[in-house]
Design a protein around this nucleic acid. Structure first.
Lengths: 219, 219
DNA sequence: ATAACCATCAAACGTATGTTTTAAACATAC
DNA sequence: GTATGTTTAAAACATACGTTTGATGGTTAT
């Protein structure tokens, strides 16, 4: 073949297995046998397992950050100087994620699950890589969230953004299982888009909650 | 010695290392050398690494579920037939977690981090163990949450509880890292109690958000 | 005193991991 | 058609893992 697709097959298999099982729990042999390539191919093409992990993230994060950047440009153009509202920012964010071209119908939930894992699993090299490569679009999102919640102190905003990321990554990462449970329990089918549509008002309300750090009614 | 403290030393070391690094990333050799016991002691006293993981959870989850049960009894008694409000339920939950007797000042954050890991890391045996052992207090919490959000449809409530669990588990599972980032950025030190106190109003507001499934302003 | 029991220890076991090596097959350019 | 650089293949590498073994010492009960 003119150009081998070995690299892509490895990336596809690794992406799926990482999302299912986490990084440490996924061996190179699982990946290469799922991808139907030789074991040595990973180290040949990527150099190491850690570099493969980073490559998996780069493959979807790079186009996503470009899409997001353009969508934010669009949003700010429509707002003509006025800072975008929190709901607008959140909606552009979820829309960009959902609208990304995905390799299959599981793409969006794999995407989310990987983001959650990047935060959760203590992979020092990954955190460094993501901070170096994607600090700019991340910073832009943070600035927009800040503009959308001018009433919050920096500390309040920081924590509430963490809560927001948690709710999103967690829900999306297990959206398949959650959708299935709901289907069995109430006979209702839900799309990822609908989940996102439910998530946005939840997050917006949480981010903007009045916050007289509630005192217990306990005696 | 009359009674060896080997078991407790193993549990203490394991608890701390699991919380720091996750389960797969923590080897028995790390644990036994931190605990200053022989490598074989783990398999002798617990049988296997998985059984040790479960024992670590049981040691704090069993007393916690008893404390929580009594606190819910208390709450319902104070409410005299009226269903407790959502804020009351959430507050009793976090209060019970915070008020638990802990072995040291890191105890509460280790507790939280482990709970987050239990959700996040795909340890099949752990999930089964927790479901079997603690289904009753978990079910009670779910019933109270339902009573506290009577205005929600079953579907809305289902998803919003998932969002809530996600925000909590995710934040708690990376609370150390998040606290550290905040310390470096703004020079502010945060206790786990403060995080919990910030989380409650966020969750309460999100759970009770008005929900006219927001339509994008996008063209 | 002696037997039974339990906890500890160093050492080894078998397995699985990430990585490297060697040779063969391949496509492409001359 | 042969040479060249690239990709695959199979095997072996060293290392780390969870677990098991068999000997040893100490405590308890008979």
């Amino acid at each position: 073949m003119a150009q081998s697709d070995t690299v892509d097959r490895i990336l596809n298999a690794a992406e799926e297995l990482f999302a299912e099982r986490g990084f440490s729990e996924t061996s190179l042999r699982m990946i290469t046998s799922k991808a139907n390539v030789n074991l040595a191919a990973v180290n040949y093409h990527f150099g190491s397992k850690n570099a493969l992990i980073q490559a998996v993230f780069a493959r979807f994060l790079t186009p996503f950050s470009e899409t997001l950047d353009k969508a934010f440009d669009d949003l700010e153009r429509r707002c003509k100087g006025e800072p975008p509202t929190l709901q607008q920012t959140l909606w552009v964010l979820t829309e960009s994620a959902v609208r990304m071209p995905h390799r299959n119908e599981k793409g969006i939930s794999i995407f989310m699950r990987l983001l959650g894992l990047a935060y959760t699993q203590s992979q020092g090299h990954l955190r460094k890589f993501l901070e170096q490569e994607y600090s700019e679009p991340f910073g832009r999102l943070m600035r927009l969230l800040k503009a959308g919640t001018p009433q919050l102190s920096a500390v309040d905003r920081y924590w509430r953004i963490q809560f927001m990321l948690g709710a999103t990554a967690f829900t999306m990462s297990s959206s398949d299982a959650l959708r299935e449970i709901l289907e069995n329990k109430l006979g209702i089918d839900t799309t990822v888009q609908e989940i996102a549509a439910r998530l946005v008002p939840f997050l917006a309300a949480g981010l903007q909650a009045d916050d007289p750090i509630s005192v217990p009614k306990t005696a």
